[in-house]
Design a protein around this nucleic acid. Sequence first.
RNA 1: GCGCCUGUAGCUCAACCGGAUAGAGCGACGGACUUCGAAUCCGUAGGUUGGGGGUUCAAUUCCCUCCAGGCGCGCCA
Length: 531
Amino acid sequence: MRRRSTFTMIRQELKDILKNMFPDEEIVIDYVPKEKEGDYSTNIAFKIASREGKDPKKIAEHIVAKIKSPIIKHITVHKPAFINFTIDENYLLKQLTQKSEIDIGRGESILIEYVSANPTGPINVVSARAAAVGDSLVRILNQTGFKAHAEYYINDGGKQIELLAESVRQRMIELQGGTAHLPEDGYHGEYIIDVAREALKRIILDTENIKTYAVNYFVENHKKMLSDFGVVFDYWTHESDIYKKKYVDKILKILKDKKLTYMKDGALFFKTTEFDDDRDRVIITSDKHYTYLLPDIAYHFDKIERNYNKLINIWGPDHHGYMKALYGGIEALGHPTDILKILIVQEVKLKKGGKFVAMSKRAGTFTTLDELLEKIPTDVARFFFLMRSSSQHLDFDLDLALKQSDENPVYYVQYAHARIKSIIKFAEEKGIMVTSDIDLTHIKEKEELALVKNVLKFPEMLEDAVRHLEPYFVTYYLIDLAHDFHYFYQKHRVVSDDRELTQARLFLIQKTAEIIKNGLGLLGVSCPEHM
RNA sequence: GCGCCUGUAGCUCAACCGGAUAGAGCGACGGACUUCGAAUCCGUAGGUUGGGGGUUCAAUUCCCUCCAGGCGCGCCA
């Protein structure tokens, strides 16, 4: 049985009605396309008809005859056999005054790990996108009754860090007049010179200290950049913490005991092919170093030990080939793999002067989050990142984002809010205050009711966003809601001589403003009173 | 070669376990301000959903195949 939300969702009400009639049927409620009669619809007649080999239209008519509900104004059957519901206006208006909160999560705890950029350089734009997505997801989940925490994992061990330290050391030699011999697969970016300069100032000389210094340098940099971007993490967990807890040894022992490892060419392999991976993975190299996989499994063991009901990882597209290895590790430990959901945020292609900018961290040619924010306001950047499904590639046209900033959808939504605030102020100056003690039955125009219906869709939209773990549902919704408001505003005066109508409309737009503010907050975008 | 992602209007993208005449924004063209914010609104044009098969009452969605692009395939992360 599906749990009911405490928030009254009309969609859910309809679902319940049908569920009572057809307990074994999966009930789907859709929105009716614009210009069609009705608000919600169901395709249940098709389902039953195809299974029983009957005429869907007859079944639809049969169902319609049996439904009685005070929330439904009327029901109609359309074309093949859609059943459309038109919701009673008085019921809608009553819902508008209900103060309630949405609880989908029922307190389920979720740990969302995202960005987790290696402390070997600045944050690139794909990580920036992941930051926007992850932060917004945390906000959405926390508003819908989950207990979500944000975590950043710092890889402060492994070979990459050795290469980083060596790259810095070589740059230090260079700064002192020597010749730098950068490791071939080391870090060649200019930014390493800045680190080297700072390290010299502090007279940090031996490799171990350089390593620590460099890691901290980048971790602090990431913290600051993300915080400037409005992204704050609850936890910063170091790989070295996992070692300190002896979890890595523990996991190694479990894998060995379960005979899931073998030696080959002097290296220790984990048999991930037993978990549907396409090849086995090295976990200890022939020169006795751990690869990233083993501590990573240990890290996920740690997350599970911390009693989360669910783990979400947000990764870049370059890690998809690694998913099965990690899932294999979790399964090897005896945990169901569905405790972890890995979201792949697809790449960002930056467009500049009509050309795509080539990006590579190791070659040092990539655009960083700070460079992006130097050019583009945070609000715009976040809105852009959340404007489309995170599983889709994203073309980010820098020139366009700047040049057309006046017509950017983020301003469109913000403008709707500012406009409402301005109207309310105008009314107040005339001595008309917004109050909930009003007669909403004055709301009867088509454009008003469209706005009412969309405002009431907010929790339903959040339910969709949670189901798909996609913040862009919020973005799309806000643009649509702003449009409904602007359209209404164009057709009708809010503040008029009709006192009661004015009060009713003020209440409606005040509600709209609240939803916009709430929604933009979920995106991490500001919501100014004036623009 | 194998794996993942993608191909929808001129451009950027939607379309929720398969549903109604495939929708928005930008761009183009044409309209709407003596009263609450024109950063707004309305209208028009624009589509063989990459091609071809298949399954279905119904396919952008599922299956097969071909074409095109991106990413990954390390004893790096």
